[in-house]
Structures are given as C-alpha cells and as structure tokens.
C-alpha cells in the first residue's frame, strides 16, 4: 500500500511526513512526498496538508501543473481514500474568504469563514488543545475517545469551514461557538486540527486512515 503526501509548497511537510511514516511503518505502507501528478494517480491513498492562508495555498496547488486534475481523477472519480489537513481540509470547501475570495475544490460544499469571538476573552487564532464532539460515527474516529472527557486534538486556525450540508460535518469543537473540526463524505475526509501534532489522538487517526476502506 502506498500513500502520497502532496507537496505544493505549503510548509511543514516534514512533520506530516514523519507522523504518517510512523503509522505507515506498522502497516507496511510506503509514504511518498510528491509534487508529481502521476505519482498521485498511482498511489492508493492521498494526503493534502496545508499551512498558511487559503488563497496562498490554492495558488500553490494551481502552480503544480496537472495536480488539481490528478486529485479530481484519483479522489472524485477513482474514489481513493483522501485526507486533507488544516488548510488542506479547508480547500475542500467551495470557497474561502480569507484575504479576499478564492475558489476551493468544492468537494465539500461550504465556505471558509473567519472565527468571530463570541466573548472578548476568546482569542483568535483558536490555538491549542481541544476535544472533539462527534456528529456521527466515522471509521477515522474508531476507538478514539472523544467528547469533553476524551483525547485532545491540536488546533491552530483563524478560519473554519462552514459546510452547507450538516451531514458533511463529522465532528465539531467548542470554542465559544461550535467550530468545524472534521468534515467528510464517501472517500473524502478532512481535519481542521493537525493529526501530525496531536500525539495519541493524531497517530490513532492516521492509523485509522491507512486502514480505511470507504
């Protein structure tokens, strides 16, 4: 089994690579960091990381010739298991509203909007460890304790994905209001938090992704 981590110039690939590699080693999977659309077509699973601003990341993805097409082909038509992380998750939306409007991949209809603090003492970015409130069962959360007394995930973001279809929200997190923590449908899933930085919860989620047969 092989996993591609898409490299489109959006930093911090090293952490994602090492965390996935650790989980993959236990399952005998091969992890490839790549900016080659043909590699994306060839592998069994795809991870799209992302750090920074939405529009910047979208530009970066568009700059890799043929990458968006390869992703559409592999994920939408080829039904390969797909995991988007942070801005890689936000890019699944129809559009992002960070520093102007930018188009997303529109795989999960919705918009990426700014977190508005509901009280003055809530700081933005939403930064640190928070728990997950699952909206429904999902194989990626299998055997992971969630809820107020569950494990924590590491978040750092000022925008979040508001999905048009509530069924696409797998889990939320509480920060004054409900923020979207995890979205998905069919073979597609995305986490606003960073599994590669979320210790126990993160490594368990990545292992679940590598085992996932949607």
């Amino acid at each position: 089994m092989s996993v591609a981590i898409v490299d489109y110039g959006s930093g911090n690939l090293h952490s994602a690579h090492k965390a996935i590699e650790r989980a993959a080693a236990e399952q005998g999977a091969q992890v490839i960091v790549t900016s080659d659309p043909d590699v994306v077509r060839r592998v069994d699973r795809i991870v799209l990381p992302g750090v920074g601003a939405f529009a910047d990341c979208r530009r970066g993805l568009d700059h890799v010739a043929g990458m968006v097409e390869a992703l559409e082909e592999s994920v939408i038509r080829g039904s390969k298991p797909f995991l988007g992380i942070c801005v890689g998750m936000q890019l699944l939306a129809s559009r992002g509203l960070e520093h102007g409007v930018a188009q997303g991949l529109a795989w999960i209809p919705g918009e990426v909007i700014e977190i508005k603090p509901t009280t003055p003492n809530l700081k933005v970015p939403h930064m640190g460890w928070n728990t997950l409130a699952p909206k429904r069962q999902h194989p990626l959360l299998k055997d992971i304790p969630t809820g107020e007394n569950g494990l924590h995930a590491y978040f750092v973001h000022s925008y979040h994905l508001q999905a048009t279809n509530p069924d696409h929200v797998i889990a939320s997190t509480e920060y004054g209001a409900e923020l979207t923590a995890m979205v998905g449908r069919d073979n597609i899933v995305g986490t606003q938090f960073h599994p590669e930085k979320s210790q126990k919860l993160g490594l368990a989620l990545i292992a679940n992704f590598l085992r996932w047969t949607p």
Binding site: G11, N12, H14, S15, K18, A19, V51, K197, Q199
Partner: peptide
C-alpha cells in the same frame, strides 16, 4: 515528537522562518 514546536532566537529574515518551518517547527 508529534507535538507542537516553537523555535525562537536569532530569527532575522523570512528565509530563517522558512527554514525552521520546513525543518518541522510549527511556530
């Protein structure tokens, strides 16, 4: 370590920042 990492000290240019982020710093 799969935990968040902040690195400071002597950061003067955007290249310094990029190198630290690429090496695996989160902040």
């Amino acid at each position: 370590c799969f935990m968040p990492l902040t690195v400071g000290g002597g950061v003067r240019t955007t290249d310094d920042i990029r190198n630290l982020l690429l090496a695996g710093a989160d902040k």
